[in-house]
Design a protein around this nucleic acid. Sequence first.
DNA 1: ATAATAAAAGACTATTTTATCTTTTATTAT
DNA 2: ATAATAAAAGATAAAATAGTCTTTTATTAT
Lengths: 146, 146
Amino acid sequence: MGIFSKTCEYAIRSVFFIAHRTAGQTGRVGIKEIAVGIDSPEPFLAKILQDLSRRGIVQSTKGPNGGFYLDSASLERPLSDIVAAVDGNDIFYGCGLGLKQCSEVNPCPLHNEFKDIRNKIHIMLHETKIGEFNDELMNGMLSLKK
Amino acid sequence: MGIFSKTCEYAIRSVFFIAHRTAGQTGRVGIKEIAVGIDSPEPFLAKILQDLSRRGIVQSTKGPNGGFYLDSASLERPLSDIVAAVDGNDIFYGCGLGLKQCSEVNPCPLHNEFKDIRNKIHIMLHETKIGEFNDELMNGMLSLKK
DNA sequence: ATAATAAAAGACTATTTTATCTTTTATTAT
DNA sequence: ATAATAAAAGATAAAATAGTCTTTTATTAT
């Protein structure tokens, strides 16, 4: 198990992929190309993008020349929006040992240590924007598959 | 989903519980008391402790006055041993976006950010010893249930 | 030796996550 | 208008994780 669910991993990678494939231009990119581009099972990814589309995190149009794309507002959104939408906020606020009422006044043994780590994750994901890696993705310096 | 699997959360909490209930004395503590003490399903926890016992992370004896305990070597072990035994090493070394070959020469967009975070988790879990919270657990300043 | 106790082991069930397949709806080009 | 295209929606299926139940084995006190 990683930090994120498999669903969330695919979600982030696909949004990065859509970003760098459609940024600037008016183009769209189809589910098939995305699935190949991030090495994910196509029908599963379709479900995930359907959900992200409903939530307004990615944009899509049906029919010929249709596909997924990102408007300029979406390109500026932080990665934390994707993670919160897919995996919820537990990774930012949950107790590391799974205690429901863990808090400053009722702390688990690792409360402070985890607060620090979760905070770093939160800040990192909040400061990173969806469109931020487009250049490096286009010239192949960064990978979204393998 | 948290950072750890449910199994691993129960494992850590139960080991903390056994530690503070048996440290110093020659006593043992039974599965029933542990399950109540950390609010976990008893038969599931039994399976988990069975596994930790096989791996030598906790000690146990059967029969009357039997139960689980920790020898002095076990009390000094780092939490990272429990996590590695139960959840594996992915949390310390795996790619945040799930890429198998993510590395310095083939990085995902978040490679450096995650390297940093995973490292902090690893160091924290390695520096924290199983018996370290016994005093605060005994006087109720720290919680392992709710 | 025997009975009582408590963990170990093994088989089984339920739930959640991951993944697939089929049908419907929207869009575009002809 | 019609046919072709591509995502949306819905219904299933497979795999992994979480949880339960029953039987066996080891230990101890009598």
